[in-house]
Amino acid sequence: MKIMATIDLTLNIWRQKDNDSLGEFEIYQLNNISTDSSFLEMLDVLNEKLTREGKIPVAFDHDCREGICGMCGAVIDGVAHGPEKATTLCQLHMRNFSTGDTLVIEPFRSRAFPVKRDLMIDRSAFDRIIQSGGYVSTNTGGAIDGNSILIPSDKAELAMDAAACIGCGACVASCPNGAAMLFTGAKISQLCLLPQGAPERHSRALAMIDAMDKEGFGNCSNAKECEAVCPKSISIRNIARLNREYAKAAFLSETKK
């Protein structure tokens, strides 16, 4: 049986009151952290300690703590969601670190993601991109029998690969251009791979990319940093698909931009 191990850490955490205030790093010493605890549980321990010291805890977003809601995220030593591949911050465990380590913890930074407080950011820009067309326009009721739309299982799997996006924003935070093209490409891909999404594929591509630009996100220059940090391993092939969809739409669409 495994014996519980603990580590001691120095934390360099970004503290910022709101988007209009200047922020700075503060240093905290935190000892006896179980290596079985998650990164967020480590932050819980820090916040309990700060509370008992009469100080203000570190604000950070989190909810499901099982890697699916997409609410958590921070940059650890320069890497969004930390050192473990394909893992959200809540599923990153402290056994990935060693005693004596100094960790630098910052919010996801991007022009389109204003800092709300400390590690908490505003990602509503993602919602607005989806609102511009990231769906199939069908009202409730009157849908035909599910099995009357046949979808080859490999196509369904590819669509599912893209649909697995949790909207955390790590892709944006790690992109040198602050691009949201992996996020947008994943939704465009999911829907253009499926027959249900076909009728709107041109208007969707044009509208979503327009929305993406308006929010102040940058463009892709193939740095591939997004794919490297994506907790759901969304492939940049989805960006290629986005570009193809956009090009086709721009040339072929009757829709005026």
Binding site: Y135, V136, T138, T140, G141, A143, I144, D145, G146, I149, I151, P152, S153, A156, A159, M160, A163, Q190, L191, L194, Q196, G197
Partner: peptide, 15 residues
Amino acid sequence: IDQCVAQGVPFAREY
């Protein structure tokens, strides 16, 4: 099920 398929929910499929 019909409604969700119409929305493009990528349910698992047989070959």
